[in-house]
C-alpha cells in the first residue's frame, strides 16, 4: 500500500498544487462574484421588486460590483486560455 502511495506512482506535488490552486481560485472567484452580487443589490440601480425597500442609488457601490464581476469574467477568460493552450 505504501509503495503505491509513493512519489513514483502519484504526482503528489501536482496534486497538492491542484488542490491549493483550486481552493484559492475556485472559492476565491465564487466569493468575489458573491461580493459583486451583494454590492449590486445594495447599489440601488436594480429594481428589487415591489415588496422591498429600494436602496438609495450609490454609483461607487455599483462600480465596485462591476469590478467584482469583471474579475470573475477575467478569470473565466484565463481559464479558456489554459484550455486552448494545452
Amino acid at each position: 500500500m505504501m509503495r503505491v502511495l509513493a512519489d513514483s506512482y502519484v504526482d503528489w506535488a501536482s496534486m497538492w498544487k491542484i488542490l491549493v490552486i483550486s481552493v484559492c481560485v475556485g472559492a476565491g472567484l465564487v466569493a468575489v462574484y458573491a461580493v459583486g452580487l451583494r454590492a449590486l443589490s445594495a447599489s440601488g440601480y436594480l429594481r428589487v421588486g415591489e415588496d422591498q425597500a429600494q436602496p438609495k442609488r450609490n454609483a461607487f457601490v455599483l462600480v465596485a460590483a462591476i469590478i467584482c464581476i469583471a474579475i470573475v469574467a477575467a478569470g473565466a477568460l484565463y481559464g479558456l486560455n489554459v484550455m486552448f493552450d494545452k
Binding site: K17, I18, I21, S22, G26, A76, G79, M83
Partner: peptide, 10 residues
C-alpha cells in the same frame, strides 16, 4: 471548472 482546468494545466 477550476479543478478541471488546473488538472489540465498540470
Amino acid at each position: 471548472a477550476v479543478v478541471i482546468l488546473s488538472s489540465t494545466h498540470y
